[in-house]
Design a protein around this nucleic acid. Structure first.
Length: 261
DNA sequence: ATGTCTGCGATGCGCAGA
């Protein structure tokens, strides 16, 4: 079974690219972030036409997350992280798909840092970490996929010294990610490619894609149920080179898991 | 500091967010 995550940066503006990628890469399950569309403007028909069922949590202008599946209905479990009823950003959605639990997340960027946006990022991270702990305690196969807006280590950025003043690479952000992983999660991309420079995002600025000046900020965290079931993990880099593309590339994993249709 | 996308509101561009 192939599961993907993709920050589309505008689901409607990106629709041709999204549909082409879904056809060519054909993930069984796809988590999308940065829909930048209100609930009623999600392009459901075009996605259903490709054989997917979908749930999504839209928001006007900003954020927005979705879970697509063609291997069983995504049955929504929650559409926000617990812990702050006043947080109205659409950044999290979680579903059961057959016997899998999938959490799709868009962690706050946090820039400029320090400042209130960085405080929000860390507070959101704390809530995610608390929720992740509860998910592990349920002892079910769980995948937390999405745009974490964190560069975990110096290995995950083309030029670490350029990013020391950025919320994506601040020590607090990296420590929060490390603390989360340490609960017992596996960083799937890093596990399958322990020595490799892997990027999932290239800025629109300064010809970042042309220079391969990338960051690894889109991650798959897997519960220990997948320790012996992770077959492959990689980035659909070619998508970043397409016309009118997102600044992120899709990331995917392949797991040994029966597909129930 | 720069740079370039997105969506939106009020225009023929400026703004915020990333």
């Amino acid at each position: 079974m192939k599961i993907a995550t993709y920050n589309v940066n505008g689901v409607n503006g990106r629709l041709p690219v999204l549909l082409r990628w879904l056809k060519e890469s054909a993930p069984d399950i796809a988590c999308l972030q940065e829909l930048k569309a209100p609930q009623e403007k999600f392009p459901l028909q075009a996605i259903e036409d490709l054989g997917y069922q979908a749930i999504w949590h839209g928001q006007k202008s900003w954020n927005g997350v979705a879970i697509l599946s063609k291997v069983g209905e995504p049955v929504e479990v929650r559409r926000a992280l617990p812990g702050d009823p006043e947080d109205l950003h659409s950044r999290y959605i979680e579903a059961n798909i057959n016997d899998l639990r999938i959490g799709c997340l868009y962690l706050p960027n946090g820039n400029p840092a320090p400042g209130p946006k960085f405080d929000y990022k860390l507070a959101w991270f704390k809530r995610l970490t608390a929720h992740a702990k509860k998910l592990l305690a349920e002892d079910i196969p769980v995948i937390l996929a999405g745009d974490y807006n964190v560069i975990p280590t110096e290995m995950d950025v083309y030029k670490p010294e350029s990013w020391t003043k950025d919320a994506l690479f601040f020590p607090e952000s990296r420590e929060a990610y490390a603390k989360l992983v340490k609960q017992g999660w596996t960083d799937a991309l890093r596990k399958m490619h322990p020595e490799e420079k892997i990027y999932t995002f290239w800025d629109y600025f300064r010809n970042a894609w042309g220079r391969n000046a990338g960051l690894r900020i889109d991650h798959f965290l897997l519960s220990n149920h997948f320790d012996k079931k992770l077959l492959a993990a990689d980035v659909d880099r070619q998508v970043r080179g397409w016309e009118k593309t997102s600044d992120h590339a899709p990331v995917w994993i392949e797991i040994k898991h029966a597909v129930k249709k």
